[in-house]
């Protein structure tokens, strides 16, 4: 009966948008599905959109942290996007800082984060110059990545 959250693929990126109140089993399924899809598709980025999520408790928080570290082991970077302010306030008070989880305010900014880290991974000089990105744009390597 437990629903499964769809995992969409756009190029090298897997996109998950959580739209409903998930029970714990669905959260575990999502973690397993995403891990399998990263390996199956060779994706190098994962975006998890939580803009419709009204609460993140310790169970969901742990899932986000686990996906973030799992994906790094599988050579992909995870960005969590769209966290509501009330959710952020509650998470901190709950005691969950989600230190290892990369976040961005919007989906668009999250995609930019992944794009920049892809450019950096593919080698320093050529593509960085071609893409017009530089350190002045705030480009930096993911501290947890390398």
């Amino acid at each position: 009966m437990t629903e499964r959250v769809p995992v969409l693929q756009i190029g090298q990126i897997l996109l998950v948008s959580i739209q409903t109140d998930l029970d714990d089993q669905a959260v575990v399924h999502l973690q397993d599905d995403l891990t399998a899809r990263i390996v199956g598709t060779g994706a190098d980025g994962v975006v998890i959109d939580i803009s419709a999520v009204e609460i993140v408790d310790s169970f969901v928080g742990r899932m986000l942290a686990t996906i973030a570290s799992l994906s790094l082991l599988l050579d992909a970077q995870t960005v969590v996007v769209g966290m509501r302010p009330a959710v952020a306030i509650t998470l901190v008070e709950l005691g969950l800082s989600l230190g290892g989880v990369r976040t961005a305010l919007t989906l668009e900014m999250g995609l930019k984060v992944l794009e920049r880290s892809r450019v950096l991974r593919q080698g320093p000089s050529q593509e960085l110059a071609e893409s017009g990105l530089s350190d002045e744009d705030g480009v930096r390597a993911d501290p947890a990545g390398q």
Binding site: I55, V56, D57, F59, T90
Partner: peptide, 11 residues
Amino acid sequence: VEQTKLVTAAS
């Protein structure tokens, strides 16, 4: 914010 805190505690 208070709603979110209460619902999270309930969860």
